[in-house]
Design a protein around this nucleic acid. Sequence first.
RNA 1: GUCCCCAUCGUCUAGGGGUUAGGACGUCACCCUUUCAAGGUGAAAACACGGGUUCGAAUCCCGUUGGGGACGCCA
Length: 491
Amino acid sequence: MLVAAAAIHHRARIFSTMSVVVRFAPSPTGFLHIGGARTALFNWLFARHHGGRYLLRIEDTDRQRSTEPAIRAILDGLDWLGLAADDPPVFQFQRVERHRQAALELLDQDHAYRCYCQPAELEAMRAEARAAGRVRAYDGRWRDRDPATAPPGVDPVIRFKAPLSGETIVADRVQGDVRFANDQLDDMVLLRADGTPTYMLAVVVDDIDMGITHVIRGDDHLVNAARQANLFEALGRVPPVFAHIPLIHGADGSKLSKRHGALGVDAYRDQGYLPEALRNYLLRLGWAHGDEEVISTERAIEWFDLDGIGRSSSRFDFARLGSLNAHYIKEAADPRLVDLVAPRLESDGHRIDETARARLEAGMAGLKPRAKTLVELADAALIYVRARPLPIEAKAAQLLDAAPDGLLQGAAAAFASLEPWSEVELEACCRRLAEEAGLGLGKLAQPLRAAVTGRSASPGLFEVMRVLGREEVAGRIDDALRGLGRNAAVQ
RNA sequence: GUCCCCAUCGUCUAGGGGUUAGGACGUCACCCUUUCAAGGUGAAAACACGGGUUCGAAUCCCGUUGGGGACGCCA
């Protein structure tokens, strides 16, 4: 009867008739880094694809290293990425009693035992194991020892009675069947001497209680999966489906971790990347759907599956992220981009009043195809928000110096009576002026650009002048003619 | 050291016995052009090595090398 029930349970999982429940389970010991963000994304996508639930569990059982700011950073990061959980987060430490109870149960059922080893003793065992070329460090010396022989005054830990022989097979959806000889999986600690649960115990108990059906996480947990599978069984449960995704490495191939300068997602936000660009980039890092590169979130949900996940690790490539970001900036609505760029300009000390805002919106169409990040976009937008006289950059100054005498004056005079003040009229006017002077359009446009923007490169000149308006353009040309803005400290 | 995983252009990858080995980013050239971008066209660029299996291996098997991960009273 029991067997039959288990079999039905198992089949249900296999045929995925039961709804999917996944979780992202970061430990709050630092910010949400890029690898964690991808794990969260894959979990989120998997849940959405299957119409299941995506939960967040904060693994804060390490009281020393868990911090409040880290929790906030993780929550903020997920929020910004659009990967907020479906339910309020589960804080693992709040479930200690349940974990403790599970450990005691295991003890009752002879699946666990008390171990009175001291740190120094364990240290010696580890050294010896390593020297002897064994993975398994703890030798199980308290496994069958009579607790009556326990040294006085020592608080014991509770260890799992792991199988000693045979092998544990992790049927991983990404890595395939991975076999571990049980003699290399040691009796892990479930409950510390101070009575707090370890990660190994807490994950399994929580995954059971939260009804987790699929565990999608980093490759670095693959060996843990074998240990946890045994724990699930000791607790009378079928383990969830595992999918261990390869890790992301730095551009040089080394490990991309907190300790190796990996950035938090907040850093990507600060550097001007759009969340949808980061999501698209992360999705394609380790997952593929044929030749598809630019994938909307809707498509990602439709297409995402575990089969598309590759088995080799990948390297982080900023150039590629940048190109995707440029794409999404181009796609983004102008008002949104203005909202994103305005605070950046303001924090750099530029005042964004009504006029500046209007100019930004009117000029955004010409600005956005030229930017790879919001940082670049904000910089390019300076031509619309700086107050006169504009600082003239060195290259622009050269263009001004090279302009034939009277050329700019002529343009200014022609602009004064130009009707209407439109791009086509502006262009027609400039072409006429250049032709009359026997010059190519570039010979006029370049110094004019320098005068009007203070730079040698900008969006289309006629567009810029149209956005700025007749009065502002006249003023800027006048400033340039009078040599204003030269040697100004550009900021 | 032991155990586990991985290996296609510089990077991300498609391809899973017969392909001119495909795409994207980056690079280079050209076109467009008032600048810079964007856009368009094109080029260079890869199956780590050695053995098998097979009529035929990038694809399957073994080994080597290289890379990565795990070996905590961290998660």
